[in-house]
C-alpha cells in the first residue's frame, strides 16, 4: 500500500461517495419518473383512445391522495408518522361540505380559509400531544384517528352537504392547454406556495434536522418540540387541502375515512422518503401516487379484477421496500 496516495484516494472515494449519493437520490426520482412514463406509454398501447379525458381523470383522482402523501412526507421527514390523516381528511371534508351547503360564494371562501386553519390546528394538536406526552407518534396519531373520525361522525353521520361551484371548478377541466388539467396545477401551486418556502427557511432545515438526529438538532439549538409541532401543523394543513379536494371533486362530504392514511404511507415509501426521518422530499411521493393510480387504471383497461390491483399494490409496496433493504444490506457487507 502506497501511503503517499492514501489521502488522495480517500478524498476521491469521498467525492465518489458524494456524487454517488446525490446520483442515487436523484436516481430514485428519475427511476420513478421513467417508470411513470413507461406506464403512460403502456396505457396508450392497451387503450389507444387514452387521451385528454384519461389524463384529467387521472389528475382529479390523484389529487387527494397526492396531497395526503405530501402531508405524510412532511411529518415523516420530521421523524414522526401520522396515522390519522384519513380521519382528518374526512373531518375537514364533512365540515366544509356541511358549512358550504347552500351558502353564498363569499361565505364559502371564508369556509375554505376556516377549514384550512382548522387543519393546521388539528395537526398541531396531534404534534402537541406527541411532544407533551412523549408517547410514540404512531400511538398518539393512531388514537387521534379515532378522535377525528368520531368528530367527523358528530358533524354529519352520513354523506351530504355541498361545495361551492368555484371550488368544484377549481379541480375540473384544464387550464390553457387541454393537456394541463387544473388539479395538477392546483397541486403544483399549493406545494410551490407552501412547502418550498418552508423547505428553504430555517424551519425547513430544522424539520430535516430533527428527523435526522433529534439529539444533534437539540444540541444545535433547535427547539425540537416546536419544530415537531410545526411539522405536524403543516401536515394538518395539507391534510385539510386533501380533505377539501375530496369535497371539491365529489361535491359532498363523507364522514367515513377513506384508505388515505395507509396509502399515504405506502406512497411516501415508494417515493423515497426514509421512514427513519430526515431524508426524502415531497416530489417523489407525488410521482409514486400517480404510479399507483395509473396501475389501477391500467388494470381496469386490461379487464383485470380490481381486487388483484389491490394485491399488486401490496406487492409493489413490499417489493420496493425489500429491494431497498437488500441494496442496503449488500452495501453494508461490501
Amino acid at each position: 500500500m502506497s501511503a503517499a496516495t492514501a489521502p488522495v484516494d480517500s478524498g476521491r472515494v469521498a467525492l465518489a461517495g458524494l456524487l454517488g449519493s446525490s446520483a442515487r437520490r436523484n436516481a430514485w426520482i428519475l427511476g420513478l419518473l421513467g417508470f411513470l412514463a413507461l406506464l403512460l406509454v403502456f396505457t396508450k398501447l392497451i387503450q389507444p383512445n387514452y387521451g385528454v379525458p384519461g389524463i384529467q381523470g387521472l389528475a382529479i383522482s390523484v389529487l387527494p391522495l397526492a396531497l395526503a402523501a405530501v402531508a405524510q412526507a412532511i411529518v415523516v421527514i420530521s421523524g414522526g408518522i401520522d396515522l390519522s390523516i384519513g380521519s382528518m381528511m374526512a373531518l375537514i371534508s364533512v365540515v366544509s361540505a356541511t358549512l358550504m351547503a347552500g351558502q353564498s360564494e363569499q361565505f364559502d371562501v371564508a369556509v375554505v380559509v376556516g377549514v384550512l386553519v382548522l387543519g393546521l390546528l388539528l395537526g398541531a394538536v396531534n404534534g402537541g400531544l406527541a411532544v407533551v406526552t412523549r408517547v410514540p407518534d404512531i400511538v398518539v396519531t393512531l388514537a387521534m384517528s379515532f378522535v377525528w373520525a368520531g368528530c367527523a361522525l358528530l358533524v354529519a353521520d352520513s354523506p351530504g352537504g355541498g361545495a361551492a361551484q368555484w371550488l368544484k371548478d377549481l379541480v375540473t377541466g384544464s387550464i390553457g392547454n387541454e393537456w394541463i388539467p387544473k388539479p395538477a396545477v392546483v397541486l403544483v401551486a399549493v406545494v410551490a406556495l407552501i412547502w418550498i418556502p418552508v423547505r428553504r427557511s430555517r424551519l425547513g432545515l430544522s424539520i430535516y434536522g430533527v428527523g435526522s438526529d433529534r439529539l444533534a438538532a437539540f444540541r444545535s439549538g433547535v427547539s425540537v418540540g416546536r419544530t415537531r409541532i410545526l411539522a405536524y401543523a403543516l401536515m394538518g394543513l395539507f391534510a385539510a387541502l386533501a380533505g377539501l379536494s375530496l369535497t371539491a371533486s365529489t361535491g359532498i362530504g363523507t364522514p367515513v375515512p377513506g384508505p388515505y392514511t395507509l396509502m399515504s404511507v405506502a406512497a411516501i415509501v415508494l417515493g423515497g422518503v426514509s421512514l427513519a426521518g430526515g431524508r426524502g422530499g415531497v416530489f417523489g411521493p407525488i410521482v409514486a401516487v400517480m404510479i399507483l393510480q395509473i396501475i389501477r387504471t391500467d388494470m381496469t383497461f386490461l379487464d383485470v379484477d380490481t381486487n388483484l390491483a389491490t394485491v399488486l399494490q401490496g406487492l409493489i409496496l413490499i417489493g420496493v421496500v425489500m429491494i431497498g433493504s437488500i441494496v442496503q444490506i449488500r452495501r453494508a457487507r461490501g
Binding site: 430555517r202 432545515l205 430544522s206 430535516y208 434536522g209 428527523g211 435526522s212 438526529d213 439529539l215 444533534a216 438538532a217 444540541r219 444545535s220 439549538g221 433547535v222 430526515g278 431524508r279
Partner: peptide, 23 residues
C-alpha cells in the same frame, strides 16, 4: 456552549446547512 462526546451535527444535512441551523 458545550461540545459533547458525540458531535452535534445533523447527519443528513450538509455542513453549510448545519451552520445555518446554529446561526
Amino acid at each position: 456552549v458545550s461540545i459533547y462526546q458525540e458531535p452535534a451535527l445533523v447527519p443528513d444535512l450538509d455542513i453549510r446547512s448545519n451552520l445555518r441551523l446554529t446561526e
